[in-house]
Simulated assay, not measured.
Amino acid sequence: MDAKMMAPKAVLMVAIAIATLTGCETTKPLYHYGSYQTNVYEHFKNEDSAVTEQIEALEKTIRETNRNKLQVGPGLYAHLGFLYLQSGQRDTGLAYLQKEKQLYPESTHFIDFLLKNAKAGQS
Score class of each variant (00 low, 15 high):
residue 117 N to C: 10
residue 73 G to T: 07
residue 113 F to W: 15
residue 110 F to H: 12
residue 77 Y to N: 13
residue 112 D to V: 05
residue 68 N to H: 12
residue 79 H to W: 06
residue 96 Y to Q: 09
residue 97 L to Q: 04
residue 95 A to T: 11
residue 57 A to V: 02
residue 101 K to W: 03
residue 79 H to R: 00
residue 100 E to Y: 04
residue 65 T to Q: 07
residue 111 I to S: 04
residue 106 E to K: 15
residue 60 K to W: 03
residue 86 Q to S: 08
residue 65 T to A: 08
residue 107 S to R: 14
residue 81 G to P: 00
residue 82 F to V: 01
residue 112 D to K: 08
residue 98 Q to S: 13
residue 102 Q to G: 05
residue 108 T to Y: 06
residue 105 P to E: 11
residue 85 L to G: 02
residue 67 R to T: 13
residue 105 P to Y: 03
residue 112 D to I: 01
residue 97 L to A: 05
residue 64 E to L: 11
residue 80 L to N: 00
residue 107 S to K: 12
residue 116 K to C: 09
residue 94 L to G: 05
residue 93 G to T: 08
residue 95 A to Q: 11
residue 93 G to A: 09
residue 105 P to T: 10
residue 115 L to A: 11
residue 60 K to G: 07
residue 93 G to M: 09
residue 108 T to F: 05
residue 73 G to V: 05
residue 76 L to Q: 03
residue 55 I to H: 00
residue 77 Y to W: 11
residue 94 L to I: 15
residue 59 E to W: 00
residue 116 K to G: 09
residue 99 K to G: 05
residue 95 A to G: 12
residue 93 G to F: 03
residue 92 T to S: 11
residue 63 R to W: 08
residue 105 P to H: 06
residue 91 D to T: 12
residue 71 Q to I: 15
residue 86 Q to Y: 07
residue 106 E to M: 10
residue 57 A to H: 03
residue 86 Q to W: 04
residue 116 K to M: 13
residue 104 Y to I: 10
residue 110 F to N: 11
residue 57 A to Q: 02
residue 113 F to N: 12
residue 104 Y to N: 15
residue 110 F to L: 14
residue 56 E to F: 08
residue 109 H to R: 15
residue 55 I to E: 00
residue 109 H to W: 09
residue 112 D to G: 02
residue 111 I to A: 05
residue 71 Q to D: 14
residue 88 G to W: 06
residue 79 H to Q: 06
residue 56 E to D: 15
residue 99 K to Q: 13
residue 103 L to M: 14
residue 82 F to K: 02
residue 92 T to N: 10
residue 96 Y to L: 02
residue 117 N to T: 09
residue 65 T to K: 06
residue 97 L to C: 06
residue 71 Q to L: 12
residue 58 L to I: 04
residue 85 L to F: 03
residue 65 T to Y: 08
residue 82 F to W: 10
residue 62 I to Y: 00
residue 59 E to A: 03
residue 68 N to Q: 13
residue 109 H to N: 13
residue 81 G to F: 00
residue 73 G to K: 06
residue 96 Y to C: 05
residue 79 H to K: 01
residue 111 I to L: 04
residue 56 E to G: 12
residue 94 L to A: 07
residue 71 Q to A: 13
residue 79 H to P: 00
residue 89 Q to T: 10
residue 81 G to D: 02
